[in-house]
Design a protein around this nucleic acid. Structure first.
Lengths: 335, 335
DNA sequence: TCTCAAGATGGAAACGTTTCCACTCCTTGG
DNA sequence: CCAAGGAGTGGAAACGTTTCCATCTTGAGA
């Protein structure tokens, strides 16, 4: 591989001149520019990224950690992050979890890996990190941002939807449609955002004088298959209900499928409500009523903030984008 | 940030000794190991990845290009690639397309970006690259592998399912179930794998004496929404058919949704067949009959091959894993 | 004609590793 | 008792950039 020295020699200029031409800054004569350009062309020179990073201490790269690869939930978010970064001329390195022991350990390892790779900033997604872990990340790489997680110690750096409010909105929507007997498929206990939306959901239910402690509920892991299984379990437990709230859309999709297997028609026999508002929720049979969480915008704003602290830009940063109930056919009205 | 020099000084050893301890190779006394370890601990030393890459010329990183982030098709494949790499102690840097002009240009840019980042090998997914582009990639980074693409020039480095055979299998399945009037929602013309599966599909149809030229067909872009639109278009064109073959599962999901909007029940009024066998295809309403393409295994084998040429490992490489029709409820039998 | 500033230029030094070579001990076998 | 070899060690050199400083040239203004 040709180096910048080869280029300089071939172009008949010094090292500094060659470097200035490549960087496109500093005073260089038009003639030198031409000769260096030609030499680069002829030698097929490509600058070594490693050498550059070593020298400058900056990599123009943001590290992104995402808890898992599977499913259709993370991809639009990743896409939003990616395009936002590219629009600012930055690059992205992603690390995924779901490989080793726990999601928490995965996230910590991910943060280490990404900082070691010389990322200028870190975007950590997920809720498994505990306060001491975040403290550790802060000392590893102070320029970081948390997506879907809130910690009091770093309020500015946390970007998360209002899950409590969104959960409450879901409950109110169900109640306004006349439902009073509700069942729940919730997410894993370790998921903080699940806890929050369930809290909001139950609080709002209580406002409608519904006995929250009597609600049939099962736990899933956010995967469609666990939604299917959850629905079957709820059906088998013999308690009757008219609406089923699922902690995310993917479980809701699975639930609808499980209900169909059992001969339960949605929404005729049972209403199903999802959460997140993934693209696919519009195309299920029947189309899924859900709470649209502004994931893309939240991600974009988190990236903006991160870019601002990393590179001194002044990109606009919005917070507190409201969630919104998406009325579709999977929830019916009760007289 | 502490450097290895600081560590050496603090531990009271030379540079070489410190380096050997960190690398875990070469002769070092137990005492020196202990002291260096302690110094690392105390100084919170983390080796500079950039310096290491610069020196060794290896990054223990494989670059992966994926045409787009959206949707649920690429994620399981990405997951397979990722876990396979991690099992061999390697890392992954992903680059996505869908940002700039064309997918072809995206892929080329991606290849450049990834090689510049010092990736030891490249896995390029997608079908948009043309032979000269691949030639260019080969000179950029000879250690590469193509997933879902076949070029005569680099037969060993191409890993792709047998789309023609799989398309034919789909057609035969439909015919065996008694269907003779078929419609098609195909993928974009630029997608080579779409062309192949359509060729196989039509050839097999011809074997059953079906006039292929008379088949109503529309074009989608592999997205669910385009499937929905496609189904509506086909319905509106007034030609009658009993089965609808979609070039991928996501469009099939969209098609089922579109049919439902139009009051067409699946499979009672119309059968729908998908392609790929994504996880979600088992959970649609009704569950989707599809062709299971061994994407995960193909990806894993591609990675194995790449690792073998990059790091001299001897991982097993399988080729030609057969596709297989997954019979579910969305295709009905015709007497 | 002289002075000064700005425009160009070349090259040493630095970034943080690993690799390699030279050196010192110590052990072992003859 | 000596030779040979291996274990352990330290430090120079190299990887490919950028940055900085010193030097040289040029042209404008006095």
């Amino acid at each position: 591989m040709a180096t910048i020295k080869d280029v300089a020699k071939r172009a008949g200029v010094g090292l500094g001149t060659a470097s200035r031409v490549i960087a496109g800054s500093g005073p260089v004569s038009a003639d030198a520019v031409r000769r260096v350009r030609r030499a680069i062309e002829e030698l097929k020179f490509r600058p070594s990224h490693a050498a550059r990073v070593l020298q400058k201490g900056q990599s123009q790269t943001i590290g992104v950690f995402v808890p898992l690869v599977h499913g259709s939930f993370y991809t639009p978010i990743l896409h939003a992050i990616y395009t936002t970064l590219r629009m600012s001329g930055q690059h992205m390195v992603v690390d995924f979890g779901q490989t080793l022991e726990s999601e928490r350990q995965d996230a910590l390892d991910g943060a280490e890996f990404l900082t070691d790779r010389g990322c200028d900033g870190l975007l950590m997604m997920g809720t498994a990190l505990r306060p001491p872990d975040i403290e550790r990340i802060a000392e590893l790489q102070p320029k970081f941002v948390l997506l879907n997680r809130s910690v009091p110690r770093f309020p500015e750096q946390c970007f998360h939807p209002d899950h409590t409010g969104a959960g409450a909105a879901a409950a109110r929507a169900l109640c306004e449609a006349g439902h009073r007997r509700v069942a729940i498929i919730e997410g894993p206990k370790t998921s903080r955002d699940n806890t929050l939306r369930m809290r909001g959901f139950c609080q709002a239910l209580a406002e409608y004088k519904i006995d929250v402690s009597a609600i049939p509920r099962v736990q899933g892991d956010f995967s469609p298959e666990s939604g299917r299984l959850g629905a079957r379990t709820l059906l088998d437990c013999g308690r009757s209900f008219t609406a089923l709230f699922c902690a995310n859309d993917e479980m809701a999709i699975g639930a609808i499928s499980g209900l169909r297997e059992a001969g339960v028609a949605v929404p005729r026999d049972l209403s199903v409500m999802g959460y997140d508002g993934i693209d696919l929720s519009a195309l299920t049979v029947p189309p899924l009523t859900t709470v649209l969480i502004p994931w893309r915008q939240t991600a974009t704003n988190a990236v903006h903030y991160l870019l601002n602290i990393c590179y001194g830009t002044k990109l606009p940063v919005l917070r507190d984008i409201p969630a919104q109930v998406l009325w579709r056919e999977s929830v019916g009205r009760i007289a």
